[in-house]
Each structure stands twice: as structure tokens, then as C-alpha cells.
Design a protein around this nucleic acid. Structure first.
Lengths: 189, 189
DNA sequence: GTCTATATCCCGATAGAC
DNA sequence: GTCTATCGGGATATAGAC
């Protein structure tokens, strides 16, 4: 296990604070206080508050993009692809709960990197929708509007970060299975 | 149709800005600029920025509480209660898209009213969960953990405000029906 | 690598003229 | 009801000592 650098520590501590109050409400003094140093000392490791936000959001967004590419390439049915997407969200969300909060809620405070982020997200959503459309065409999925389907599934997956920490006893594999069951087959008996 | 007071206009304009950038990132000068007046003039109608946030969030939260009470009292099955909850979220979200954004994302910036808001939300979630538990007991719903069910359905409903404005051509009744189909019966054929 | 001191700017809010 | 002017405080970020 690699030792955490001071820069990585700043990013980790900042992400936790961003989750609680949002990027705009967290000050450099808040971050410094959580590390028991002074705000000015942070600038020996990072260039700006904005840099911290970019580090949190872009790396996470790129992980989703990379893994979606793998799922897209694999030669399996739509249902199986969706199950893999569910597992992907459970895994990345549980690995980086605080970062997921910024990804969801603070992307609009990105500056130079905003348009890059928006492209990554938009590509991801298009890939997701194509999987649904392919599933409808092949008869695997019901013929409801893919927009509504995607919205319903993706907002649930994007909110996982809010919910995983509350259930510390949870088994992540079991969570993925329960979610697949509910999202794919519904709750109606 | 009642004429909008200046105070109501401030709240409406502020809610729109809060949705775009969040409470903390919106300044009184931003709100004033959107109304073509100076920031100081706002204080002739409201006491503080915090008052605006309270007006947006608390009235919406109370609407959900009131309507949940009606649904709870009605003598219908769990599935029908869930359909009514879905319709409730579609209706309130479409009526107040900007307010729903603050309700979801800016409640943590409440001050005096924070604990009251948390109680309203917590009561709502408990009522929701009891409906699911009752549905499992009666055999209407599958026996998956009600926590996971509630999380999945409620996060989708809470995110409707993000999605409704993108589909201006949408029929709200049709949206409610599609959502009921997807959330209750899944997308698997 | 952290500190103190400070520059520069913008925040919410108030006072008082009109 | 809106304005100008301003207060007091806190924001990000830099300079330079240690």
C-alpha cells in the first residue's frame, strides 16, 4: 500500500468536506483546519482550490468512461451489460463515496475542465442509452421510452454514495444483486 | 391568478439561481441583478438570504408531508399507494422545479429550520418504508429489503426535477404511468 | 513544509437620502 | 421601494522568514 502524499491527503480531506457542505461553502481554512495546518501551507502542495475540485471529479469521471468502454465492447446481452453497469457503480461509489458527491453536485463549479467533464458525462449517457435501445430491439427489455428507463436507473446509481455509508454492515455483492433485481425486474410480485 | 408580490418574485428568482449554482455560490448581488435592482433593495422585502432558503424549502417539504398523510390514510393497497406517491412527486416537481433543486441540494445550509426540515424528511421516509413493509407482508411486493427498495424508488423520484425540464413536450400523466411501470415492474421483459 | 503577515477582493447587511 | 455609500468580516492567494 503506497503511502499517501500530502497532496493526496488534501484531496481526500477536501472531498469529505465538499460532500458535507458543497464546494462553494468549504473554505481553504476549513480544509487546512481538518489537517491541523494553516491555509497558506496548502499552497505548497496545490495551486488553487479549483485544482482540488478538478482532481476529485475528472479522475472519477475518467474511471467511469474507461470501464463503460470495456462493457460496451463485450459481447453479451443488454441485461448482462446493465448488471455490469450496476456493479461498476456500486464498486466505484463504495471506493470513493466523497468523490462521488462532488461528481454529482459540484461539477458546475469546474472552470477550465467543465466542458471536458460534460463531454465525458454525455458520452457515458449515450452509451448507456444505446445499450437500452439495443435491448429493446432484441426483445430483452420492455418497449418503454429508453429516456425514462435511463433516467430511472442512472439517478438511482448516481445516488448510491448517499446511501452506502449508512449501511456499514452491507455486503457490496449482495447490494449489487438486490439492485439488479429491483431495477431490472421491479418490486411487483 | 394572483399577482406576484415582490417578495414572491425574489424567492422565485433566487430558487432558479440556487438550482444552477447552489445556495452558497449565489450572492445577494446575483439575485438583485436578475431583477434589475440593487442588492440593498432586496432587504426591503426579505430579512436575510437565509429567509429566502427557508421559504423555498420548508413550504415544499410541508406539501410533501401533507399529501403523504392523505395517501397513508386512504384504504388502498400498497401498489396503489406507491402509484399515488409517484404521481405526487411528478406533480410537485413539475410545479416547482427550481424549489425541488434546493430541497434536494441546499437543505444542509438551513440554520434555525434545519432540524424541522430533517424531521419532516425523516417522517416522510418512515411513512414510505411502512407502505413497502405492509406491501411485502400482504404479498403485493417481492421480499427484497425495503431499505433498498425505498432508496431506489425515492432517489429516482427526488431527481425528477433534473429531468422534467429537458422534456418540454412531455405529458405528465404519461410520465407518471411510465415511471410506475418501470419502478414497480422493472424493465425486464 | 509550515508559518505570519498581508494584498485584493467580495460577501451579507445596514443607514439614510430621495 | 430603490438608491448610494459603507461597515465589518471572511474569501483566495502570495511573499518571504524560518
Amino acid at each position: 500500500m503506497k503511502t499517501e502524499t500530502r497532496k493526496e491527503e488534501i484531496i481526500r480531506v477536501a472531498a469529505k468536506l465538499f460532500k458535507e457542505k458543497g464546494y462553494s461553502a468549504v473554505t481553504m481554512r476549513d480544509i487546512a483546519k481538518s489537517m491541523d495546518i494553516k491555509a497558506a501551507s496548502l499552497y505548497n502542495h496545490i495551486n488553487s482550490k479549483q485544482d482540488i475540485l478538478e482532481a476529485i471529479i475528472i479522475s472519477l469521471a475518467e474511471q467511469f468512461t474507461t470501464e463503460m468502454l470495456e462493457i460496451k465492447k463485450s459481447e453479451i446481452g443488454a441485461i448482462d451489460k446493465l448488471k455490469q453497469i450496476i456493479t461498476l457503480h456500486v464498486r466505484l461509489s463504495s471506493q470513493n463515496i466523497y468523490g462521488m458527491a462532488s461528481l454529482n453536485n459540484d461539477w458546475m463549479h469546474l472552470e477550465e475542465q467543465m466542458s471536458y467533464y460534460i463531454k465525458l458525462r454525455s458520452d457515458y449517457e449515450n452509451d448507456f442509452k444505446h445499450i437500452l435501445e439495443e435491448g429493446i430491439r432484441s426483445g430483452e427489455l420492455i418497449a418503454v421510452k429508453p429516456d425514462v428507463m435511463m433516467f430511472s436507473i442512472l439517478t438511482t446509481l448516481r445516488s448510491l454514495y448517499l446511501w452506502i455509508p449508512k449501511k456499514e454492515d452491507i455486503n457490496l455483492g449482495e447490494l449489487s444483486e438486490n439492485l439488479s433485481l429491483i431495477l431490472l425486474n421491479g418490486i411487483n410480485k
